[in-house]
Amino acid sequence: MMTLFGDPNIWLPWSFGALLGVSILIYVVLDGFDLGVGVLFPFANGAEKDTMVASIGPFWDANETWLVLAVGILLVAFPVAHGIILTSLYLPVAVLLIGLIMRGVAFEFRAKAPAPWKNTWNGVFYAGSLLSSLAQGFMLGMYIMGLTWTWGNVGFALLTAVFLTVGYSFIGATWLILKTEGALQKKAVDWAKGGIWGLILGIGAISVASPLVSPRIFEKWFSFPSMLYLAPLPILSGLLVAYLWWKLSTLPREDDSYAWSPFVAAMALFILAFLGLAYSFYPYVVPEQMTIYEAAAAPEALIIILVGACFVVPTILAYTALAYWVFRGKATALSYE
């Protein structure tokens, strides 16, 4: 059965590379918006903060689980690469984890601790969201620069840290446009207008930097005819940005129509950016050092996981959809009853 699709040493690593990519993408979009909502916290007043948390309360845990899956796939399918990447990103990973701990527990504590403490936990929630976003952006930057710690690379990574954080707050704001109403929704439109530049600069910086760092990536993008095939990526992204710019200036509307559109466009932008990155780095899992084919675990182990994944991942997607459907509509105060 293993040779059904040709050489298992080729298609198994490829499938896991794809699975890894998909989980990272889902993670970045989903946790991206809920981290972003946290990053926007200081701009909201007390009651708005409650609504903001209510809009992500039922989802954040499941969103974060995609990170666990992504790390899990990296761990089990490309164990050696997992070791190299995580040990060279040791400190930012620790910052990410502590950030995630802070915001994760703040969800509960801010609602359950005695009232005078609520502000403190709001602060913890904000700080945790900010730290996690920054750490992720930093890791992305270091990864693009080939995981070597030089001052230049760290400088670049600090930039991507800021851009990704602003990008997250942008998609967070579009989520709030979808899930809230009234004054908060108006504010969210402004936040989205203010945040879109983070995404643009981020995508721009990465698009400029990655070909400069690696001649291989340069070759992949700027040679004929691949330039032609790839042209839709930047063009579509440009169109989406223009669309968002225009749409945001018309929102919110009386009848709340099109409240969903910025979020959908933002998702599309994230997906395009991600496809670009994936194209640049394939087939490497550790940039310029190790390909997915070199790093893959034994086919015997991979096949066991893949068979399970074929059944389980669609199920997961189905019940995730169920959860989003149950909590559809405008966010209302969360209640255990």
């Binding site: 039922p58 499941a62 689980t65 969360l334």
Partner: peptide
């Protein structure tokens, strides 16, 4: 991760809220 974590995390939302 596949059989336990997602199950818990997704249905926890429904169970709690």
């Amino acid at each position: 991760v596949m059989t336990a974590f997602f199950l818990e995390a997704v249905f926890l939302g429904i169970m709690l809220f």
